[in-house]
Design a protein around this nucleic acid. Structure first.
Lengths: 212, 212
DNA sequence: TGACAAATAGCACGATCGGTCGTGCTATTT
DNA sequence: AAATAGCACGACCGATCGTGCTATTTGTCA
Protein backbone atom coordinates (compact mmCIF):
# COMPACT_ATOMS: atom_id res chain seq x y z
CA UNK A 1 0.00 0.00 0.00
CA UNK A 2 2.84 2.34 0.84
CA UNK A 3 0.60 4.76 2.66
CA UNK A 4 2.51 7.98 2.29
CA UNK A 5 4.17 9.33 5.36
CA UNK A 6 3.03 12.79 4.37
CA UNK A 7 0.19 12.85 6.83
CA UNK A 8 2.51 11.75 9.59
CA UNK A 9 4.93 14.50 8.68
CA UNK A 10 2.11 17.02 8.74
CA UNK A 11 0.87 15.91 12.12
CA UNK A 12 4.33 15.77 13.63
CA UNK A 13 5.26 19.23 12.43
CA UNK A 14 1.81 20.41 13.45
CA UNK A 15 2.26 19.12 16.96
CA UNK A 16 5.36 21.21 17.33
CA UNK A 17 3.62 24.21 15.83
CA UNK A 18 0.60 23.90 18.08
CA UNK A 19 2.83 23.68 21.11
CA UNK A 20 4.48 26.93 20.13
CA UNK A 21 1.50 28.91 18.90
CA UNK A 22 -1.55 27.40 20.55
CA UNK A 23 -4.62 26.11 18.82
CA UNK A 24 -5.48 29.38 17.16
CA UNK A 25 -1.91 29.74 15.93
CA UNK A 26 -2.16 26.67 13.75
CA UNK A 27 -3.23 27.88 10.34
CA UNK A 28 -3.55 25.77 7.24
CA UNK A 29 -1.21 27.97 5.27
CA UNK A 30 1.28 28.28 8.07
CA UNK A 31 1.37 24.58 8.74
CA UNK A 32 1.67 23.83 5.03
CA UNK A 33 4.59 26.21 4.73
CA UNK A 34 6.28 24.57 7.69
CA UNK A 35 5.82 21.11 6.25
CA UNK A 36 6.96 22.36 2.87
CA UNK A 37 3.90 21.70 0.80
CA UNK A 38 0.97 23.58 -0.64
CA UNK A 39 -1.98 24.58 1.47
CA UNK A 40 -4.41 22.72 -0.74
CA UNK A 41 -2.28 19.62 -0.78
CA UNK A 42 -2.29 19.61 2.99
CA UNK A 43 -5.97 20.36 3.17
CA UNK A 44 -6.77 17.32 1.00
CA UNK A 45 -5.51 15.04 3.79
CA UNK A 46 -8.10 16.39 6.19
CA UNK A 47 -11.43 17.84 5.30
CA UNK A 48 -11.62 20.80 7.63
CA UNK A 49 -9.47 22.82 9.92
CA UNK A 50 -11.18 21.30 12.92
CA UNK A 51 -10.11 17.88 11.67
CA UNK A 52 -6.53 19.11 11.52
CA UNK A 53 -6.63 20.40 15.06
CA UNK A 54 -8.25 17.23 16.34
CA UNK A 55 -5.65 15.14 14.57
CA UNK A 56 -2.97 17.20 16.26
CA UNK A 57 -4.59 16.69 19.65
CA UNK A 58 -4.81 12.96 19.00
CA UNK A 59 -1.15 12.89 18.14
CA UNK A 60 -0.40 14.80 21.31
CA UNK A 61 -2.26 12.20 23.31
CA UNK A 62 -0.16 9.49 21.71
CA UNK A 63 3.07 11.25 22.46
CA UNK A 64 2.02 12.06 26.01
CA UNK A 65 1.03 8.50 26.52
CA UNK A 66 4.44 7.35 25.37
CA UNK A 67 6.62 9.76 27.30
CA UNK A 68 4.45 10.40 30.36
CA UNK A 69 2.03 7.61 31.11
CA UNK A 70 3.60 4.43 29.83
CA UNK A 71 6.93 4.74 31.67
CA UNK A 72 5.13 5.63 34.88
CA UNK A 73 3.08 2.48 34.72
CA UNK A 74 6.23 0.50 35.32
CA UNK A 75 6.36 1.87 38.84
CA UNK A 76 4.58 -0.05 41.60
CA UNK A 77 0.95 0.88 41.97
CA UNK A 78 -0.16 3.54 44.39
CA UNK A 79 1.84 6.49 45.57
CA UNK A 80 5.00 5.39 43.78
CA UNK A 81 3.17 5.29 40.49
CA UNK A 82 1.55 8.65 41.14
CA UNK A 83 4.97 10.10 41.88
CA UNK A 84 6.36 8.65 38.67
CA UNK A 85 3.48 9.96 36.62
CA UNK A 86 3.61 13.48 38.00
CA UNK A 87 7.37 13.47 37.62
CA UNK A 88 6.94 12.70 33.96
CA UNK A 89 4.04 15.11 33.59
CA UNK A 90 5.59 18.33 34.85
CA UNK A 91 7.45 19.81 31.91
CA UNK A 92 6.66 16.86 29.66
CA UNK A 93 6.52 18.96 26.51
CA UNK A 94 10.20 19.80 26.80
CA UNK A 95 11.02 16.17 27.37
CA UNK A 96 8.95 15.15 24.37
CA UNK A 97 11.06 17.36 22.16
CA UNK A 98 8.38 19.96 21.56
CA UNK A 99 9.66 23.47 21.19
CA UNK A 100 6.59 24.95 22.87
CA UNK A 101 4.35 24.25 25.79
CA UNK A 102 1.49 21.87 26.49
CA UNK A 103 -1.26 22.38 23.91
CA UNK A 104 -4.02 21.28 26.25
CA UNK A 105 -2.98 23.69 28.96
CA UNK A 106 -3.13 26.51 26.45
CA UNK A 107 -6.44 25.28 25.09
CA UNK A 108 -8.00 25.34 28.55
CA UNK A 109 -7.62 29.09 28.59
CA UNK A 110 -8.12 29.65 24.89
CA UNK A 111 -11.42 27.85 24.43
CA UNK A 112 -13.11 28.52 27.72
CA UNK A 113 -15.92 30.56 26.22
CA UNK A 114 -16.18 28.92 22.81
CA UNK A 115 -17.60 25.61 21.81
CA UNK A 116 -17.49 23.16 18.96
CA UNK A 117 -15.76 19.93 18.09
CA UNK A 118 -12.32 21.07 19.16
CA UNK A 119 -13.48 22.19 22.57
CA UNK A 120 -15.30 18.90 23.02
CA UNK A 121 -12.11 17.08 22.17
CA UNK A 122 -10.09 19.03 24.69
CA UNK A 123 -12.80 18.53 27.27
CA UNK A 124 -12.68 14.79 26.70
CA UNK A 125 -8.91 14.64 26.92
CA UNK A 126 -8.81 16.73 30.07
CA UNK A 127 -11.53 14.58 31.59
CA UNK A 128 -9.64 11.41 30.80
CA UNK A 129 -6.47 12.82 32.21
CA UNK A 130 -8.05 13.93 35.44
CA UNK A 131 -9.72 10.56 35.67
CA UNK A 132 -6.37 8.86 35.42
CA UNK A 133 -4.93 11.05 38.15
CA UNK A 134 -7.98 10.51 40.34
CA UNK A 135 -7.59 6.76 39.92
CA UNK A 136 -4.01 6.83 41.09
CA UNK A 137 -4.93 8.93 44.10
CA UNK A 138 -7.67 6.45 44.92
CA UNK A 139 -5.15 3.67 44.61
CA UNK A 140 -2.88 5.36 47.11
CA UNK A 141 -5.83 5.76 49.45
CA UNK A 142 -6.75 2.11 49.06
CA UNK A 143 -3.26 1.06 49.98
CA UNK A 144 -3.18 3.24 53.05
CA UNK A 145 -0.51 5.51 51.63
CA UNK A 146 -3.01 8.33 51.72
CA UNK A 147 -5.60 8.83 54.43
CA UNK A 148 -9.03 7.42 53.78
CA UNK A 149 -10.62 10.86 54.05
CA UNK A 150 -8.52 12.32 51.25
CA UNK A 151 -10.74 13.92 48.60
CA UNK A 152 -9.35 12.67 45.31
CA UNK A 153 -11.08 15.39 43.32
CA UNK A 154 -9.63 18.06 45.54
CA UNK A 155 -6.20 16.46 45.24
CA UNK A 156 -6.44 16.45 41.45
CA UNK A 157 -7.74 20.03 41.45
CA UNK A 158 -4.69 21.19 43.34
CA UNK A 159 -2.32 18.98 41.39
CA UNK A 160 -3.52 20.56 38.18
CA UNK A 161 -2.82 23.90 39.78
CA UNK A 162 0.77 22.86 40.33
CA UNK A 163 1.01 21.87 36.69
CA UNK A 164 -0.51 25.10 35.42
CA UNK A 165 1.54 27.41 37.61
CA UNK A 166 4.64 25.51 36.58
CA UNK A 167 3.66 26.00 32.97
CA UNK A 168 3.12 29.71 33.42
CA UNK A 169 6.30 30.19 35.43
CA UNK A 170 8.43 28.08 33.16
CA UNK A 171 7.15 29.13 29.78
CA UNK A 172 5.89 32.66 30.23
CA UNK A 173 8.04 34.02 33.03
CA UNK A 174 10.98 31.79 32.04
CA UNK A 175 11.71 31.13 35.68
CA UNK A 176 14.51 28.54 35.86
CA UNK A 177 13.35 27.55 39.33
CA UNK A 178 9.94 26.46 38.12
CA UNK A 179 10.81 22.77 38.11
CA UNK A 180 12.05 22.78 41.66
CA UNK A 181 9.08 24.78 42.89
CA UNK A 182 6.65 22.37 41.26
CA UNK A 183 8.40 19.44 42.91
CA UNK A 184 8.20 21.09 46.30
CA UNK A 185 4.52 21.89 45.83
CA UNK A 186 3.76 18.32 44.81
CA UNK A 187 5.58 16.87 47.79
CA UNK A 188 3.64 19.18 50.07
CA UNK A 189 0.44 17.89 48.53
CA UNK A 190 1.53 14.37 49.29
CA UNK A 191 2.50 15.13 52.86
CA UNK A 192 -0.88 16.69 53.45
CA UNK A 193 -2.59 13.53 52.19
CA UNK A 194 -0.46 11.09 54.12
CA UNK A 195 -1.52 9.53 57.40
CA UNK A 196 -0.10 11.11 60.52
CA UNK A 197 2.38 8.97 62.46
CA UNK A 198 -0.27 8.04 65.06
CA UNK A 199 -2.56 6.78 62.36
CA UNK A 200 0.28 4.68 60.99
CA UNK A 201 0.03 2.48 64.04
CA UNK A 202 -3.61 1.60 63.56
CA UNK A 203 -4.36 1.87 59.86
CA UNK A 204 -3.39 -0.54 57.12
CA UNK A 205 -4.38 -4.17 57.11
CA UNK A 206 -5.06 -3.92 53.40
CA UNK A 207 -2.00 -4.42 51.26
CA UNK A 208 -3.20 -5.39 47.80
CA UNK A 209 -0.20 -7.18 46.41
CA UNK A 210 0.54 -5.90 42.97
CA UNK A 211 4.28 -5.46 42.89
CA UNK A 212 6.77 -8.28 43.37
CA UNK B 1 -11.55 69.71 26.08
CA UNK B 2 -14.66 67.69 26.66
CA UNK B 3 -12.79 64.57 25.81
CA UNK B 4 -15.57 62.39 24.46
CA UNK B 5 -16.46 59.33 26.39
CA UNK B 6 -16.14 57.33 23.20
CA UNK B 7 -12.72 56.05 24.09
CA UNK B 8 -14.01 55.03 27.46
CA UNK B 9 -16.88 53.19 25.85
CA UNK B 10 -14.49 51.44 23.52
CA UNK B 11 -12.21 50.36 26.31
CA UNK B 12 -15.06 49.21 28.53
CA UNK B 13 -16.67 47.14 25.81
CA UNK B 14 -13.23 45.89 24.82
CA UNK B 15 -12.50 44.72 28.34
CA UNK B 16 -15.56 42.55 28.25
CA UNK B 17 -14.66 41.28 24.80
CA UNK B 18 -11.09 40.45 25.78
CA UNK B 19 -12.33 38.53 28.80
CA UNK B 20 -14.51 36.43 26.57
CA UNK B 21 -12.23 35.92 23.60
CA UNK B 22 -8.71 36.39 24.85
CA UNK B 23 -6.15 38.77 23.48
CA UNK B 24 -6.16 37.30 19.99
CA UNK B 25 -9.94 37.38 19.91
CA UNK B 26 -10.04 41.15 20.10
CA UNK B 27 -10.16 42.40 16.55
CA UNK B 28 -10.58 46.00 15.47
CA UNK B 29 -13.61 45.23 13.33
CA UNK B 30 -15.22 43.08 15.95
CA UNK B 31 -14.67 45.58 18.71
CA UNK B 32 -15.93 48.42 16.52
CA UNK B 33 -19.06 46.47 15.71
CA UNK B 34 -19.62 45.82 19.39
CA UNK B 35 -19.22 49.46 20.29
CA UNK B 36 -21.39 50.44 17.35
CA UNK B 37 -18.98 52.50 15.31
CA UNK B 38 -16.82 52.14 12.26
CA UNK B 39 -13.53 50.32 12.32
CA UNK B 40 -11.59 53.35 11.15
CA UNK B 41 -13.33 55.61 13.62
CA UNK B 42 -12.22 53.33 16.39
CA UNK B 43 -8.77 52.98 14.96
CA UNK B 44 -8.29 56.75 14.99
CA UNK B 45 -8.44 56.73 18.79
CA UNK B 46 -5.43 54.47 19.00
CA UNK B 47 -2.67 54.21 16.46
CA UNK B 48 -2.16 50.48 16.33
CA UNK B 49 -3.76 47.28 17.47
CA UNK B 50 -1.09 46.81 20.10
CA UNK B 51 -2.11 50.16 21.55
CA UNK B 52 -5.69 48.94 21.77
CA UNK B 53 -4.70 45.76 23.56
CA UNK B 54 -2.45 47.63 25.96
CA UNK B 55 -5.23 50.10 26.69
CA UNK B 56 -7.51 47.18 27.46
CA UNK B 57 -4.93 45.67 29.79
CA UNK B 58 -4.53 49.02 31.52
CA UNK B 59 -8.26 49.25 31.99
CA UNK B 60 -8.26 45.73 33.39
CA UNK B 61 -5.64 46.76 35.90
CA UNK B 62 -7.81 49.69 36.98
CA UNK B 63 -10.86 47.51 37.41
CA UNK B 64 -8.92 44.82 39.23
CA UNK B 65 -7.47 47.43 41.49
CA UNK B 66 -10.90 48.72 42.32
CA UNK B 67 -12.67 45.41 42.92
CA UNK B 68 -9.79 43.26 44.16
CA UNK B 69 -6.97 45.25 45.69
CA UNK B 70 -8.53 48.38 47.14
CA UNK B 71 -11.20 46.70 49.28
CA UNK B 72 -8.63 44.24 50.60
CA UNK B 73 -6.40 47.02 51.78
CA UNK B 74 -9.01 47.92 54.34
CA UNK B 75 -8.25 44.67 56.15
CA UNK B 76 -5.58 44.73 58.83
CA UNK B 77 -2.08 44.13 57.50
CA UNK B 78 -0.61 40.67 57.36
CA UNK B 79 -2.48 37.44 57.04
CA UNK B 80 -5.90 39.06 57.30
CA UNK B 81 -5.11 41.33 54.38
CA UNK B 82 -3.72 38.43 52.37
CA UNK B 83 -6.91 36.49 53.03
CA UNK B 84 -9.03 39.43 51.94
CA UNK B 85 -6.99 39.92 48.78
CA UNK B 86 -7.09 36.30 47.73
CA UNK B 87 -10.78 36.14 48.55
CA UNK B 88 -11.35 39.02 46.17
CA UNK B 89 -8.94 37.63 43.60
CA UNK B 90 -10.40 34.18 43.03
CA UNK B 91 -13.15 34.59 40.50
CA UNK B 92 -12.77 38.36 40.39
CA UNK B 93 -13.76 38.62 36.74
CA UNK B 94 -17.26 37.41 37.52
CA UNK B 95 -17.51 39.84 40.38
CA UNK B 96 -16.30 42.68 38.17
CA UNK B 97 -19.18 42.06 35.81
CA UNK B 98 -17.07 40.66 33.01
CA UNK B 99 -18.75 37.99 30.98
CA UNK B 100 -15.51 36.10 30.39
CA UNK B 101 -12.44 35.08 32.36
CA UNK B 102 -9.29 36.83 33.48
CA UNK B 103 -7.49 38.27 30.46
CA UNK B 104 -4.06 37.99 32.04
CA UNK B 105 -4.50 34.34 32.89
CA UNK B 106 -5.38 33.65 29.29
CA UNK B 107 -2.51 35.77 28.06
CA UNK B 108 -0.02 33.80 30.15
CA UNK B 109 -0.76 30.77 28.01
CA UNK B 110 -1.40 32.62 24.79
CA UNK B 111 1.77 34.65 24.57
CA UNK B 112 4.26 32.29 26.13
CA UNK B 113 6.32 31.87 22.99
CA UNK B 114 5.73 35.24 21.37
CA UNK B 115 7.15 38.61 22.18
CA UNK B 116 6.47 42.27 21.60
CA UNK B 117 4.92 45.16 23.41
CA UNK B 118 1.82 43.29 24.52
CA UNK B 119 3.80 40.45 26.03
CA UNK B 120 6.00 42.95 27.81
CA UNK B 121 2.91 44.60 29.22
CA UNK B 122 1.51 41.32 30.49
CA UNK B 123 4.90 40.43 31.92
CA UNK B 124 5.00 43.71 33.79
CA UNK B 125 1.49 43.33 35.14
CA UNK B 126 2.10 39.78 36.25
CA UNK B 127 5.34 40.81 37.88
CA UNK B 128 3.64 43.61 39.77
CA UNK B 129 0.88 41.33 40.89
CA UNK B 130 3.22 38.66 42.15
CA UNK B 131 5.21 41.33 43.86
CA UNK B 132 2.13 42.50 45.69
CA UNK B 133 1.33 38.97 46.81
CA UNK B 134 4.92 38.40 47.86
CA UNK B 135 4.82 41.56 49.92
CA UNK B 136 1.74 40.45 51.80
CA UNK B 137 3.28 37.07 52.50
CA UNK B 138 6.39 38.80 53.79
CA UNK B 139 4.19 40.94 55.98
CA UNK B 140 2.58 37.86 57.48
CA UNK B 141 6.03 36.44 58.11
CA UNK B 142 7.16 39.65 59.77
CA UNK B 143 4.20 39.58 62.11
CA UNK B 144 4.82 36.00 63.07
CA UNK B 145 1.62 34.80 61.45
CA UNK B 146 3.73 32.77 59.07
CA UNK B 147 6.91 30.97 60.04
CA UNK B 148 10.15 32.82 59.40
CA UNK B 149 11.39 30.11 57.06
CA UNK B 150 8.42 30.43 54.70
CA UNK B 151 9.61 30.97 51.13
CA UNK B 152 7.44 33.81 49.85
CA UNK B 153 8.23 33.05 46.22
CA UNK B 154 7.23 29.44 46.69
CA UNK B 155 4.04 30.55 48.41
CA UNK B 156 3.16 32.88 45.55
CA UNK B 157 4.02 30.18 43.01
CA UNK B 158 1.56 27.80 44.60
CA UNK B 159 -1.03 30.48 45.18
CA UNK B 160 -0.98 31.31 41.48
CA UNK B 161 -1.52 27.63 40.86
CA UNK B 162 -4.67 27.74 42.94
CA UNK B 163 -5.86 30.71 40.92
CA UNK B 164 -5.11 29.08 37.57
CA UNK B 165 -6.66 25.73 38.39
CA UNK B 166 -9.72 27.53 39.69
CA UNK B 167 -9.89 29.44 36.43
CA UNK B 168 -9.62 26.27 34.36
CA UNK B 169 -12.11 24.36 36.48
CA UNK B 170 -14.57 27.18 36.70
CA UNK B 171 -14.45 28.54 33.18
CA UNK B 172 -13.47 25.58 31.03
CA UNK B 173 -14.85 22.61 32.90
CA UNK B 174 -17.70 24.67 34.37
CA UNK B 175 -17.26 22.92 37.69
CA UNK B 176 -19.62 24.56 40.21
CA UNK B 177 -17.40 23.37 43.04
CA UNK B 178 -14.40 25.31 41.80
CA UNK B 179 -14.85 28.16 44.27
CA UNK B 180 -14.98 25.88 47.26
CA UNK B 181 -12.00 23.85 46.10
CA UNK B 182 -9.95 26.98 45.64
CA UNK B 183 -10.81 28.13 49.13
CA UNK B 184 -9.81 24.80 50.60
CA UNK B 185 -6.52 24.83 48.70
CA UNK B 186 -5.75 28.33 49.88
CA UNK B 187 -6.46 27.51 53.48
CA UNK B 188 -4.18 24.49 53.23
CA UNK B 189 -1.45 26.76 51.91
CA UNK B 190 -1.90 28.98 54.94
CA UNK B 191 -1.87 26.13 57.41
CA UNK B 192 1.35 24.89 55.93
CA UNK B 193 2.93 28.31 56.40
CA UNK B 194 1.72 28.87 59.93
CA UNK B 195 3.85 28.25 63.00
CA UNK B 196 3.24 24.99 64.83
CA UNK B 197 1.67 25.32 68.29
CA UNK B 198 5.03 24.74 70.00
CA UNK B 199 6.61 27.58 68.04
CA UNK B 200 3.78 29.82 69.11
CA UNK B 201 5.11 29.70 72.63
CA UNK B 202 8.58 30.98 71.76
CA UNK B 203 8.23 33.03 68.61
CA UNK B 204 6.91 36.52 68.29
CA UNK B 205 8.35 39.44 70.14
CA UNK B 206 7.87 41.53 67.03
CA UNK B 207 4.39 42.95 66.70
CA UNK B 208 4.63 45.93 64.35
CA UNK B 209 1.57 47.83 65.39
CA UNK B 210 -0.40 48.78 62.36
CA UNK B 211 -3.94 48.02 63.32
CA UNK B 212 -5.74 49.65 66.25
C1' DT C 1 -24.27 82.64 11.73
C1' DG C 2 -19.67 81.46 10.29
C1' DA C 3 -15.08 79.59 11.27
C1' DC C 4 -12.34 76.08 13.09
C1' DA C 5 -10.89 71.81 15.29
C1' DA C 6 -12.03 67.35 16.79
C1' DA C 7 -14.35 63.13 16.01
C1' DT C 8 -16.20 59.86 13.01
C1' DA C 9 -17.17 57.65 8.62
C1' DG C 10 -15.95 56.02 3.90
C1' DC C 11 -12.98 53.76 1.16
C1' DA C 12 -9.13 51.23 -0.42
C1' DC C 13 -4.74 48.68 0.21
C1' DG C 14 -2.19 44.29 0.74
C1' DA C 15 -2.08 40.23 3.47
C1' DT C 16 -4.06 36.18 5.25
C1' DC C 17 -7.87 33.40 6.68
C1' DG C 18 -10.55 28.59 5.63
C1' DG C 19 -11.92 26.35 1.69
C1' DT C 20 -12.81 24.84 -3.47
C1' DC C 21 -11.57 23.71 -8.10
C1' DG C 22 -9.27 21.95 -12.05
C1' DT C 23 -4.99 19.90 -13.44
C1' DG C 24 -0.88 17.14 -13.77
C1' DC C 25 2.27 13.70 -12.07
C1' DT C 26 3.23 9.03 -10.63
C1' DA C 27 2.17 4.50 -9.37
C1' DT C 28 -0.41 0.56 -9.57
C1' DT C 29 -3.68 -2.26 -11.79
C1' DT C 30 -5.63 -4.38 -15.81
C1' DA D 1 -0.19 -0.41 -23.44
C1' DA D 2 -4.28 1.47 -21.43
C1' DA D 3 -7.00 2.69 -17.55
C1' DT D 4 -7.30 4.02 -12.91
C1' DA D 5 -6.43 6.01 -8.43
C1' DG D 6 -3.85 8.72 -5.06
C1' DC D 7 -1.39 12.81 -4.25
C1' DA D 8 0.11 17.42 -4.65
C1' DC D 9 0.02 21.58 -7.15
C1' DG D 10 -1.32 26.67 -8.36
C1' DA D 11 -5.10 29.64 -8.90
C1' DC D 12 -8.80 31.48 -6.91
C1' DC D 13 -13.13 32.36 -3.89
C1' DG D 14 -15.38 35.57 -0.37
C1' DA D 15 -14.36 37.18 4.13
C1' DT D 16 -11.64 39.45 7.46
C1' DC D 17 -7.38 41.04 9.22
C1' DG D 18 -4.55 45.71 10.45
C1' DT D 19 -3.66 50.12 8.62
C1' DG D 20 -3.55 54.09 6.12
C1' DC D 21 -5.81 58.49 3.60
C1' DT D 22 -9.61 61.45 2.70
C1' DA D 23 -14.24 63.29 3.41
C1' DT D 24 -17.91 64.42 6.22
C1' DT D 25 -20.13 65.22 10.30
C1' DT D 26 -20.19 67.30 14.87
C1' DG D 27 -19.43 70.53 18.61
C1' DT D 28 -17.40 75.03 20.32
C1' DC D 29 -16.59 79.67 20.34
C1' DA D 30 -16.45 84.31 18.28
Amino acid sequence: MAAPDTRIRIVDQGLDLISRSGLAGVTLGGLAAEVGMSKSGLFAHFKSKDAVQIALLDRMAEVANRVVVAPAMAAPAGLARLRALVGNWIGWSDRAGLSGGCPVAAALFELDDLDGAVRAKVELMEGNWRGLLRGLVGEAVGRGEFRADVDADQFVFELCGVYLTHHASHRFLRDPQADGRARIAFEALIVRAQPTPQEWATAPDQTPGETP
